[in-house]
Nucleic acid binder design. Structure first.
Lengths: 184, 184
DNA sequence: CAAGGCATGTAAATCGTTACATGATTTA
DNA sequence: TAAATCATGTAACGATTTACATGCCTTG
């Protein structure tokens, strides 16, 4: 169901195809929402049937028709209603990395250390991507589309990701030290 | 598949029932892994069929037989193999709260502020639970079971949750200020 | 006396991933 | 010439949630 709202959110920016939506999911929401084309296409079909979207087919040579989706007033209403819902939960998410670590007592010190060091490396690389590429991408998008109000929230979420990653990095550094010194 | 490893991880501590496992998932891993009984029972059955577990049925009056599961050597090998896998990904998780906020530009200032304030309240409450109850629960468990080595990791993960929550709180406070001052 | 804990499950539905299928054009 | 981009999908499988079903015992 949530995928529906993600798609409505993007279609509220303007008409586009399923393929376009996939690219947007991959470049902007990927860290907190993503989906495969094989999930997006049927979902769009259902939303059209439900009256949340309309389609225009644009014939193309050598490729399938381009199906350009438009959000309807009903679709906009459904989106706004969802967006207005109170955020009254702290969401438990699923994180296999933490599950690993939770049972890591069963492993020997060296294996644990190499796992922690690998995570540390990956998160440092991710942080620099968020601080450089993602930040630039958001500024470009604001400039090109003129979505200043929306841009405030995009940037806020980017900073959230950066802060969370910094926290992870500091924690991993401490964890490595602790395992090195306190684990036999 | 990951649920299997969570169950193996707990059964590696000692024999127990599906009902027991559900309670453990609810009290210790709930923030990074959880499952319903309707998923746990069939999974245990499958794991027994696969030779990762053995069962002993203990008849009870007025209740269904208690089915006590034991991890086998093969189960232990499967668990250790999974635990040893390199943690070579930064996991994208799904977070409807961030998705909300990503599209919050479509909402008016007051609705956004009340949503952010609600999240702030919830996370402050969660942090105090992690710092008091969860911390106490972990120390009790270490004392009662004597799992000192495992306890190091439980405590590490608890601190991770606390740090991430602190980061969220600081970020929400900033976000509220920014929305108050910079959004019309 | 109602609610919750104990203890097991099944059935249906939804959500999500992976694999398969087509076929032209562009880029490395 | 192989791979990526464009552009659509279907099919099969696996993971997860929600609803339903039973029934005793304990606690408030």
């Amino acid at each position: 169901m949530t995928l529906q709202y993600a798609l409505l959110g993007f279609l509220n920016y303007g008409p586009m195809t399923g393929y376009d939506l996939k690219k947007l999911l991959d470049t902007s929401t990927q860290m907190f929402w993503h989906a495969e084309l094989s999930q997006i296409y049927p979902q769009l079909k259902k939303m059209e049937k439900d009256g949340l979207l309309t389609v225009i087919c644009e014939p193309q040579a050598g490729k399938p028709d381009k199906k350009i989706y438009n959000i309807t007033n009903q679709g906009r209403a459904v989106l706004l209603q969802w967006l207005s819902e109170p955020l009254d939960e702290v969401l438990p998410d699923k994180d296999p990395v933490l599950l690993h670590l939770f049972f890591a007592g069963a492993l020997n010190k060296q294996v644990i250390l190499s796992q922690l060091r690998l995570q540390l490396e990956l998160r440092r690389a991710y942080l620099s991507r968020v601080e450089v590429e993602v930040a630039g991408f958001i500024q470009d998008t604001i400039r090109v589309t003129g979505q200043k109000r929306e841009g405030i929230f995009w940037e806020l979420i980017r900073r959230f990701g950066a802060e969370q990653t910094r926290t992870s990095i500091a924690w991993l550094e401490e964890a490595i030290q602790l395992v090195e010194s306190e684990l036999s």
